[in-house]
Amino acid sequence: MPEGDTVWQTARRLHGALAGKVLTRSDLRVPRYATADLTGRAVLDVTPRGKHLLTRIEGGLTLHTHLQMDGSWKVYAAGQRWSGGPAHQIRVILGTADRTAVGYRLPVLDLLRTTDEHRAVGHLGPDLLGPDWDPEHALANLLADPARPLGEALLDQRNLAGVGNVYKSELCFLLGATPWLPVGALPADRAAKLPELARKLLEANRDRPVRSTTGRRGQDLFVYGRAPRPCLRCQTSVRAADQGAGSRERPTYWCPTCQTGPAPAPDAPQARRNRPTAR
């Protein structure tokens, strides 16, 4: 699933292509909005909010989209061949005189009054890459349920918005705690720096084409996607297991030597290895 830095990059690309321009083509390919016509209206801005995208349009309208696991936005120049997927996967087309933005496989697409944006994103905690960032508020949210596993607390967008499965695993590694450690058991000094560490990682990567948490070329991530290869710090084999319940299970990676706290037994079902890293 795309994380906060990827969504920020997508918003910047869409903003650069559409903002300040009048729509000459509008096609919302979902039954609920099949008759909606945005042509003739100017795009005001495209703003990321955590993992959500808000495309604000003249006349007090906002197109709200979320990429979830497989969605993407592609921008094409006039006459350029579209290559984001087959036509039946297109959910929305927004075109101007010189650019066309095409949304593929978007599982969430809503056309809202701009004054009603809170219906889509009002539940989110402080945005790691947004103007509302508040580390103290984010920390209070994370610690509100001290028995909750650290990894699950980090993924809950109501606590802080923008962390996905890659950053979950990487943050837990950098904090020296397993993703199953109750968040309230995290030592106070490490808990205090968690929100700003998360922000630092996303800020460092929002302008990068390839995400890196290590600063090492060719070894971009400490643990995510590395099982059963050796840990970059101690050479212990990185382990993998799913964390969460049911449809919320996520492949989770950790080093059993560098990270302390509870973890699944070595013979527990492991997450599928070699899943592509979210970008």
Rank of each mutant, 00 (worst) to 15 (best):
residue 154 L to Q: 06
residue 138 A to N: 10
residue 189 D to A: 15
residue 27 D to S: 15
residue 160 L to H: 09
residue 47 T to Y: 05
residue 97 A to P: 03
residue 123 H to P: 01
residue 145 D to Y: 08
residue 32 R to P: 00
residue 51 K to D: 07
residue 13 R to V: 07
residue 65 T to V: 02
residue 51 K to W: 03
residue 7 V to E: 06
residue 198 A to W: 08
residue 264 P to W: 05
residue 231 C to T: 12
residue 272 R to Y: 07
residue 12 R to F: 00
residue 139 L to W: 06
residue 205 N to Q: 08
residue 211 R to A: 12
residue 171 L to Y: 06
residue 45 D to T: 15
residue 194 L to W: 07
residue 111 L to F: 01
residue 108 V to P: 00
residue 129 L to M: 03
residue 268 A to S: 15
residue 48 P to Y: 04
residue 192 A to G: 08
residue 224 Y to F: 15
residue 108 V to K: 09
residue 41 R to Q: 11
residue 191 A to G: 05
residue 3 E to Q: 03
residue 145 D to Q: 13
residue 208 R to N: 13
residue 3 E to L: 05
residue 79 G to F: 07
residue 119 R to P: 00
residue 73 W to T: 01
residue 94 L to Q: 11
residue 50 G to M: 05
residue 190 R to Q: 13
residue 89 Q to E: 15
residue 152 E to F: 03
residue 219 Q to C: 13
residue 24 T to Q: 12
residue 189 D to Y: 06
residue 231 C to E: 05
residue 221 L to M: 09
residue 137 H to V: 14
residue 198 A to E: 06
residue 89 Q to P: 00
residue 11 A to D: 02
residue 201 L to A: 10
residue 24 T to F: 02
residue 220 D to G: 10
residue 81 R to K: 15
residue 184 G to C: 06
residue 157 Q to Y: 11
residue 204 A to V: 10
residue 193 K to S: 12
residue 7 V to P: 00
residue 136 E to Y: 10
residue 177 A to G: 05
residue 33 Y to A: 11
residue 273 R to S: 08
residue 261 G to Q: 00
residue 243 Q to P: 02
residue 152 E to Q: 15
residue 207 D to S: 14
residue 154 L to D: 08
residue 81 R to W: 03
residue 104 Y to V: 07
residue 212 S to M: 09
residue 272 R to G: 11
residue 46 V to K: 01
residue 167 Y to E: 09
residue 14 L to R: 02
residue 46 V to H: 02
residue 244 G to Q: 02
residue 279 R to P: 00
residue 94 L to E: 12
residue 246 G to W: 04
residue 157 Q to N: 11
residue 84 G to P: 06
residue 53 L to K: 01
residue 2 P to F: 01
residue 125 G to E: 07
residue 174 L to P: 07
residue 90 I to R: 14
residue 113 R to P: 04
residue 235 Q to A: 15
residue 229 R to L: 14
